[in-house]
Simulated scan of single mutants.
Amino acid sequence: MVMLENKVAVVTGSSRGIGKAIAERYATRGAHVVVNYTSHKAAAEAIVRSVEDRKGQAIAVQADVSKVDEVHCLFETALQHFGRIDIVVVNAGLELTGLPVTDVTEAQFDRLFNTNTKGAFFTMQAAARHVADGGRIIYIGSSTTGYPRAGYAIHGGSKMAPLYLVQVLAQEVGPRGITVNAILPTATAGAGLHTHVTEDAPIRKFMAEFSPMGRMGTPEDVANVAEFFASDLASFVSGQHLLVTGGGLA
């Protein structure tokens, strides 16, 4: 079993979905967790209680990652409370699909790119500045970046630049023993667009036919990989983009 005893993890966008699964998994493994949220305060506080029930320590911190000053406040609060940061999971993001390029508005573009691209960049920048030597930076992207599809331009496009940053940052912080990796999940039941997916939803039928394993992903599937990347087992794995798709292309 991977142990993260007394490690401090900042997980952005962790009031629900994949971020929630990762925060709770890290707590189960002994880590202290900074639960970040933008607007779902009650959900974030519920996760703090869940972490405490696992005998861990946690705080909930409101911060909109699309605003650089709030990213700085997130990291400052984490450092003030726990004294160090060992793991940063860059998970916060927005999704907008089914929209042809010709229909995208400037407001829609700015909203997604401000969070998914700008927010990810400056969160990883802050992580590079503040993560302790030997630490971990993990970006949660999307498998759609490797599988272009009609209607996904703004969604997949906004998640492309952070993948390049992962590889660059891995080189820049590698001398400090810090690893930087990306996890690219497939359509995930209980997260993002599929937070409330029903058993008879078309996406389930599509994934049953498309995926060799015949199902959608789950937040726990992603948490499994995030646990590995955060551990000593992954100390020589860096600059990588790992698909979590059950053998499917996306």
Rank of each mutant, 00 (worst) to 15 (best):
Arg29Asn: 00
Glu95Lys: 08
Ser158Gln: 07
Ile154Asn: 02
Val222Cys: 00
Asn116Leu: 10
Glu24Ala: 02
Arg136Ile: 09
Val35Thr: 03
Val131Cys: 05
Ala92Pro: 08
Gln171Lys: 15
Ala250Asp: 04
Gly98Cys: 13
Pro202Ala: 05
Lys7Trp: 01
Tyr164Val: 06
Val173His: 03
Gln240Met: 10
Gly30Arg: 06
Asp69Met: 12
Ile138Pro: 04
Met1Pro: 14
Leu193Gly: 04
Asn36Pro: 00
Pro219Asn: 06
Ile59Phe: 07
Val88Phe: 03
Arg136Ala: 14
Glu52Ser: 02
Val101Gly: 00
Ile18Ser: 01
His130Asn: 14
Lys67Met: 09
Val222Lys: 00
Phe228Asn: 04
Gln108His: 10
Glu5Tyr: 01
His40Gln: 15
Ser66Leu: 05
Thr102Leu: 10
Arg84Tyr: 06
Asn114Leu: 15
Val168Arg: 13
Tyr37Trp: 04
Arg111Gly: 09
Tyr26Ile: 10
Arg215Tyr: 06
Ala208Met: 10
Gly192Gln: 10
Thr186His: 07
Gly157Glu: 05
Gly56Val: 03
Tyr139His: 13
Gly56Glu: 02
Val244Trp: 03
Ala250Phe: 14
Gly247Leu: 14
Val71Asp: 05
Val11Cys: 03
Ile154Asp: 02
Arg54Trp: 01
Arg204Cys: 05
Ala78Thr: 02
Ile137Arg: 07
Glu76Leu: 13
Ser158Arg: 04
Glu209Ser: 15
Val101Lys: 01
Gly93Cys: 08
Ile59Arg: 08
Glu5Pro: 00
Val89Thr: 10
Thr38Ser: 08
Leu163Ala: 04
Val48Ser: 02
Gly248Ile: 02
His72Val: 13
Thr145Ser: 05
Arg49Met: 01
Glu52Tyr: 00
Leu249Ile: 07
Gly151Cys: 09
Glu24Trp: 00
Val168Tyr: 10
Gly177Leu: 15
Leu233Asn: 12
Glu52Pro: 04
Gly157Asn: 01
Ser142Gln: 03
Ile203His: 11
Met207His: 07
Gln125Leu: 14
Tyr152Asn: 11
Tyr164Thr: 12
Met124Tyr: 07
Gly13Pro: 04
Val65Lys: 06
Asp64Arg: 09
Tyr139Met: 01
Leu99Ile: 15
Ala21Asn: 05
Gly119Asp: 07
Ala223Ile: 07
Leu165Trp: 07
Ile178Ser: 12
Asp200Ala: 15
Thr117Gln: 11
Ala128Cys: 11
Ser231Tyr: 08
Thr28Pro: 00
Thr102Ser: 15
Thr105Cys: 14
Glu227Val: 03
Leu249Pro: 00
Asn114Glu: 15
Ser39Asp: 09
Asp232Ile: 00
Ala230Cys: 07
Ala58Asn: 03
Arg149His: 08
Ala58Met: 05
Ile154His: 06
Ala78Trp: 01
Gln108Val: 09
Ser66Cys: 05
Lys67Glu: 13
Gln125Lys: 15
Phe236Arg: 12
Val166Pro: 12
Ala120Lys: 13
Glu24Asp: 00
Pro212Phe: 12
His72Ala: 10
Val197His: 05
Val61His: 05
Glu220Phe: 03
Ser158Ala: 11
Gln125Asp: 06
Leu79Ser: 07
Met160Val: 13
Ala226Val: 04
Lys205Thr: 13
Gly156Glu: 01
Phe228Tyr: 15
